[in-house]
Nucleic acid binder design. Structure first.
Lengths: 256, 256
DNA sequence: AAGTGGTCTAGACCACTGA
DNA sequence: CAGTGGTCTAGACCACTTG
């Protein structure tokens, strides 16, 4: 039993008290940004707790984005987050050509949007949500999944549903690169406008975790919505999951 | 060593293979929504792995919002998420009176916004971000923290920074209930308009986790931004952390 | 090769929930 | 009360990174 850990509130588990203690040290500058924390065996010895208890504490700090764990190297204090801002001006943005593409900074080699799959539309919860949003039956929809890579990393996982099919074989080939909103619109011969977009936050599921190369449960910013043809027919449901630590969407309201 | 678990890709840890296996059973309807999973000792026996390994697998599914763990009861398959939608029409919303209040559905007893603290503005990363956004030095700012409760649960943690002080004693008293954006504007004798708002996703830190009653790392939707006086002076920086599973912000673009 | 974090086991005790 | 999940220990072996 460790003697030197605070106990507020009572019955607080040991690993959480240890997490708070480490957080205090970080806040106080004891472990400055970029510094390596003592190794797990060292912390285990210092606080007189099992290594697994140390790991639970450090895992909490990692989930809270306070530290970064690098396997085989150590655990490091994360500097204050610097995030990419993606400007989304609701007054000017009407035509949906995949604005995320234009808004992103210059890409490196290998950056862009890539098809990963064209999964069949079954009765999954996502498919049914898409069908509801588009006002169609699920079996009239086609689906296309992609990832957007930036800076050499997968940043966003995207799923598109459209009320027609089948999609051109060349478009759905895994590895196909392009601006998929534009390509889908072209394939259907339609022009798309924003209807609505929504923001939410979820933890990465196992599939998204694998696609984005992050642990399951990593906070993702979800941006979903419907685009319409000019006559108001809902014609595209899109759902993007973006690594929350690397992006934020900014809306401007004032004249500039 | 469990024999009956898939191994794609190679070197996939046991707990992740188990997680995928359970996910497959859920997807296939083997454990329908609302159903209780076998208990940890049962799964441990069935797959021939240690209970801790089972716990790691189930923890992944919980972080991915696939199951809900109820202590002393069991682990249950979560139904497809039904989220509260909060409409934010960027064309009509100019006056900042704490729109989240008006947008929320009817409150129960005990619902509302409550002051939790008026922490001193030090040099923390958050404080410096606020100072930067307001174009002031940190020591000219005051800060106020609150929670918004709805349906008997804390749904959002809010922090406000304003470029004056000290704040009225009655306003900063922990437990004070009210519409804090309105109250802050009143205290300064100013009228506030939206300048910009941004959306992001982060995991709950230890403090937010305690305020919101969720585990550290729970995905939170962050809505932050600056409001101005009519002459364009940045006068309020607000940062709300909203339980991602319970809210989503919707932007409408088409005429209705 | 040495040190780091990642996984896994066996076993124990505890806190919580519901009947 | 019995059964559930939550915490903690001791010890082992592994995969990965760096020198």
């Amino acid at each position: 039993m460790a003697t030197n850990l605070p106990s507020t509130p009572p019955n607080t588990p040991l690993y959480r008290r240890l997490a708070r203690r480490l957080q205090e040290r970080i806040d106080a500058g004891g472990y400055p940004a970029g510094a390596r924390l003592p190794s797990e065996p060292e912390l285990s010895a210092e606080f007189g707790v099992n290594r697994l208890t140390v790991r639970q504490a450090v895992a909490e700090l990692e989930r809270a984005a306070v530290v970064e764990i690098r396997r085989g190297v150590g655990t490091f204090v994360r500097p204050p987050a610097v995030r990419v801002s993606i400007a989304v001006d609701p007054r000017s943005q009407r035509f949906d050509l995949g604005s995320v593409h234009e808004a992103l900074p210059e890409g490196e080699q290998g950056d862009g949007e890539f098809v990963v799959a064209a999964p069949p539309v079954t009765g999954s919860a996502e498919d049914e949500e898409a069908a509801r949003q588009l006002g169609r039956a699920p079996d009239g929809l086609s689906r296309l999944d992609s990832v957007i890579r930036l800076g050499g990393r997968a940043r966003a996982a995207c799923s598109y549903w459209v009320p027609f099919g089948p999609l051109p074989a060349e478009l759905v080939r895994p590895g196909h690169a392009g601006n998929l909103v534009r390509d889908l619109a072209r394939a259907a011969g339609m022009e798309l406008e924003y209807d609505w977009r929504a923001f939410g936050a979820i933890g990465a599921d196992l599939t998204d975790a694998e696609l984005l190369g992050v642990p399951a449960g990593t906070p993702l910013l979800v941006r979903e919505g419907v685009s319409c043809t000019p006559d108001g027919t809902p014609s595209l449901y899109v759902r993007r999951r973006i690594d929350g630590s690397s992006a934020r969407f900014v809306l401007h309201f004032r004249e500039r």
